[in-house]
Design a protein around this nucleic acid. Sequence first.
DNA 1: CAGTGGTCTAGACCACTTG
DNA 2: AAGTGGTCTAGACCACTGG
Lengths: 239, 239
Amino acid sequence: MNESYRTRPRDEATERIECYILENNLAPHAKLPSERDMCEMWGYNRTTLRSAVKRLMVEGKLYNRKGSGTYVAPPKMERNLQDAKSTSEAILAAGHKPDTQTLCLQTIVCDKHVAQRLQMQQPGKVLYLRRLRVMDGKPVTIETSYMDMARCPSIERYDFYNEPLYEILAQCGIVVDNGHEHVGITYATPEEAQLLQVEEGAPLFYLSGVAYDRQNCPIEYFKSVSRADRLRFSSVLTR
Amino acid sequence: MNESYRTRPRDEATERIECYILENNLAPHAKLPSERDMCEMWGYNRTTLRSAVKRLMVEGKLYNRKGSGTYVAPPKMERNLQDAKSTSEAILAAGHKPDTQTLCLQTIVCDKHVAQRLQMQQPGKVLYLRRLRVMDGKPVTIETSYMDMARCPSIERYDFYNEPLYEILAQCGIVVDNGHEHVGITYATPEEAQLLQVEEGAPLFYLSGVAYDRQNCPIEYFKSVSRADRLRFSSVLTR
DNA sequence: CAGTGGTCTAGACCACTTG
DNA sequence: AAGTGGTCTAGACCACTGG
């Protein structure tokens, strides 16, 4: 049982930078101290600090210009496809008011498809969670999650109605570290149409993917459908 | 005029790994030498070699497992949203036969919107290129590109009908380094419907974005519409 | 247990931006 | 010319995998 409570320097540095922005009340496009200065301020190696900066860039919170400096990014209303953050976090980061309505929460025996995604030996008990995500009072996304009960037996006891999923998992000692997802287009079923307040058959984004912990054990298999007019996805390209 | 012909170690290392796979005829899931061994084989630092490995992982060519090793990934038929590669490359990498049909190629005076994306002081002459991308004989994507003529005056002379865009730009000394893009949903116009062989009003992926060179000068503003049934997008999540 | 990928440290040079 | 981000080097410790 290795609990590993030690926070990693990278995560610490990321928080340090976010706190620095808040405490100094930095506005969008405000300049941060240079990487070298921040290293000295907080005692990090430049490689470590840069990896923290990079993460915040992918999350859309920072940007930088070669030879010039690192700056606070203006908030955008879009979901980045590269950061493994919860939907609520993403909506909050974009400066909107998130809300969640739990549609269904129960333990079920999953099918073979889900079992394979979660690398379960055979179909077994999973927690099935279905939620409607609301932004500024308007429905945006229906999210469906499957979690292997064997990995987190006590998970049922928690309050899914009021706490973010990833925080509950963190309390169980399970931390989302990485994952992958696919983006496609689907058409609203009658039920989805009603929940999202669109016409039946309207095209929706269809996302599906798997989130893994630091040991690359699958934590969650998720799929979601989203209104395309209220959400768009962004991605950073690298060579 | 700094031409900088020196190839970067990271790029060299990336090619070394790709060549190694080809020369040793490694099948999917075959194991590569350990990172430390590859460092010694080719004289790279581990950090550098790891960044090459990471790029090939994002491109979907490699995967690895902690404590175990690095492996050749099986080919997938999807376009990753994180690598700044051309459409032809992506289709080829997925094991399909790419083809391109140039719909329009001319110099035009752009509007303010395009000028802003390309960071031009004011609307000016741009190369306008519109192409139909075909995979295994079936139309998949219509791509529209705008390139600032001031940045590459001689570009008109090249053979856009037979050579990849990024290769032509490379011959002009312009190398795509990074970029960003957005994914949305749009509906087929009559013309798009005819070209892509779908019904008018059918939902399509709508991608738009900007590609930059190593100095973060905008090279190309692009937008594209794609059939959702023949293409899907993938993304790697990180924390 | 040895080998592997994941992370971190300390220090260096480069090309670019800016005053 | 000084300062900045981008990259590279050399070496170290960790947690995990596998025989």
